[in-house]
Structures are given as C-alpha cells and as structure tokens.
Simulated assay, not measured.
Amino acid sequence: MSSVGKDLKSNSVTVSMDEVRKLAQLVEETVKFIDKQVKDGLLEDDEHVGTG
C-alpha cells in the first residue's frame, strides 16, 4: 500500500507503508539514543554535585 502526496515544491511523492515503518523505527531509535545521552549526562552531573 502506498500514498501519494506532494513535497514543498508541489512535486508528487509516493510513500509506502514500509517506508513509513522504517522511518518510525529510525525516529524511535534516535529518540532512545538521545534520551540515553541526556540521562547519562544527568547522572554525571549528579556525581559532580558537591565536589566543586
């Protein structure tokens, strides 16, 4: 199954459900990676509290 839409320049674009699923997975993995980096940074900050 695919959908047809338009890009910002009004060119036709076809997007398949497989492409949407892959994009959603990539976004989820990216958010998890960023979340881990933020949590790790917060833990490092907590370890340094009171040592300065």
Rank of each mutant, 00 (worst) to 15 (best):
S10T: 09
N11Q: 10
N11K: 14
N11C: 03
N11P: 01
S12F: 05
S12G: 02
S12P: 01
S12L: 07
V13P: 02
T14L: 10
T14F: 08
T14P: 06
T14H: 01
T14R: 12
T14K: 13
V15R: 08
V15P: 06
S16T: 15
S16Y: 00
S16N: 08
S16K: 09
S16H: 08
M17S: 10
M17L: 01
D18R: 07
D18G: 05
D18Q: 12
D18K: 14
D18N: 10
E19T: 01
V20G: 03
R21P: 01
R21K: 02
R21N: 03
R21Q: 00
K22N: 07
K22D: 04
L23E: 14
A24S: 13
Q25M: 14
Q25E: 13
Q25R: 13
Q25C: 07
Q25W: 05
Q25D: 15
L26D: 10
L26C: 00
L26I: 04
L26E: 11
L26S: 11
L26W: 02
V27N: 08
V27R: 12
V27K: 13
E28V: 12
E28N: 11
E29G: 02
T30N: 14
T30L: 09
T30V: 02
T30P: 03
K32Q: 09
K32H: 03
F33S: 12
F33W: 05
I34F: 06
I34A: 13
K36F: 01
K36H: 07
K36N: 11
Q37L: 06
Q37R: 07
Q37P: 02
V38C: 11
V38N: 11
V38S: 11
V38M: 15
K39S: 14
K39W: 02
G41Y: 01
G41V: 06
G41H: 00
G41L: 03
G41T: 05
G41K: 03
L42E: 10
L42T: 05
L42N: 05
L43F: 06
L43H: 07
L43R: 15
L43E: 12
E44Y: 07
E44L: 11
E44R: 15
E44S: 15
E44H: 12
E44C: 04
D45F: 08
D45G: 06
D45R: 12
D46W: 08
D46V: 13
D46R: 13
D46G: 05
E47F: 09
E47Y: 11
E47Q: 14
H48F: 11
H48A: 15
H48V: 07
H48S: 15
V49S: 13
V49A: 14
V49K: 12
V49R: 13
